[in-house]
């Protein structure tokens, strides 16, 4: 068994038996290939189901609020810890009730990309170091894992836990520089306004309005989302270009200074809409205008709840 998995089980067992936490949120083996599924373990004898592998793609911070009356242990990658920090600073959860087991992250694999290559249900999937071995119709193929890294993970600059109570395993090296981190966005910015608008239109037009992007985003937690408001009704429910653009652009604006670029929204979208360029923009604006990176500390006030006299104010008329 993988050593991270065994350490997770050991620590979860100890925390649950000592009564330090009521529940540990982590991952367990999925029932379909390329998938690890979220699980909440409440008894020490259940910890054996916990696993850690390259399919632990979801950002588990999304589940914190539903356990908020409990003492929660949570297995958290770099991005998960940043989302947890935001939820704490935004007073959605209480840091004192959360025990964070940080895991340095080597980058998660994209189920979508894997399925495109190998189909939904190969017979066997095995990961050996940097190689993924997939058997489909009796034929085994070995492909470098890096071909299937989730886009957000490929450009991630904070793979190591940022806020945590303990950390399992050693820190991993950071895979990209600050500048490389924004490379998707840099490419995108080279396009003409028409081409950029075309990209938005094409991406948004695929949307089926299942709201998985919203539900999976740890920081999309409004009691009533603006799309669900009936009075006033901000936007219509249909699939016109204007409705879909308003839906997505507004959701993203609401993440300004809060988005940690975990890529959860893109990963869960059933029609493959890619928000990574847009979330990079949110991040870069916060960084350039306010020298702020979301979720890097729990002592820092949320960006949009503070002001400094020397704040960037070019947008003020």
């Amino acid at each position: 068994m993988d050593s991270v998995t065994s350490q997770i089980r050991e620590r979860a067992k100890a925390l649950l038996s000592e009564g330090k936490v009521d529940v540990v949120i982590g991952f367990t083996e999925g029932t379909i290939p390329f998938t690890a599924r979220p699980v909440a373990v409440a008894h020490p004898e259940e910890v054996e189901c916990l696993v850690w592998n390259r399919f632990c793609r979801l950002n588990l911070a999304s589940y914190l609020r539903q356990f908020k009356d409990k003492k929660i242990g949570i297995i958290a990658k770099g991005c998960d810890t940043r989302s947890i920090a935001i939820l704490c600073t935004e007073q959605q959860v209480n840091r004192d009730n959360i025990y964070i087991i940080g895991i340095p992250c080597e980058g998660m694999l994209s189920r979508k990309t894997l399925r495109e290559r190998f189909g939904d249900t190969p017979e066997k999937v095995e990961i050996k170091d940097d190689i993924i071995e997939v058997t489909t119709s009796g034929k085994k193929e070995s492909v470098p894992i890096s071909n299937f890294l989730d886009t957000a993970c490929r450009f991630c600059i904070h793979p190591n836990p940022v806020v945590y109570d303990e950390m399992i395993d050693d820190e991993v090296p950071i895979r990209v520089s600050q500048e490389e981190h924004y490379s998707l966005l840099r490419e995108f910015e080279k396009k003409s306004p028409d081409e950029r608008w075309k990209y938005f239109r094409e991406e948004f037009s695929k949307c089926i309005r299942c709201y998985a992007c919203r539900e999976a985003c740890p920081t999309c937690y409004c009691e009533e989302c603006f799309v669900d408001s009936l009075n006033p009704k901000w936007i219509d429910k249909g699939f016109s270009e204007s409705d879909l653009s308003i839906w997505h652009l507004t959701r993203l604006y609401h993440q300004a200074g809060r988005c940690v670029e975990c890529g959860n929204c893109s990963a869960v979208c059933p029609v493959g809409i890619d928000f990574n360029v847009m979330t990079q923009k949110l991040s870069l604006d916060a960084l350039q205008m306010f020298q702020y990176e979301a979720g890097m500390s729990i002592d820092e006030k949320p960006l949009l709840q503070t002001f400094k006299q020397d704040d960037y104010n070019d947008f003020v008329m």
Binding site: A40, Y63, Q66, A212, R214
Partner: peptide
């Protein structure tokens, strides 16, 4: 256990071939 992991999105019902519920809106 099922509830713990449910995100509450509409994917399962939208992909299901028998789910037929609809909403009526005015514009």
């Amino acid at each position: 256990g099922t509830f713990d992991r449910c995100l509450g999105c509409g994917i399962c019902t939208f992909v299901c071939p028998t789910c037929h519920c609809f909403d009526i809106q005015e514009e």
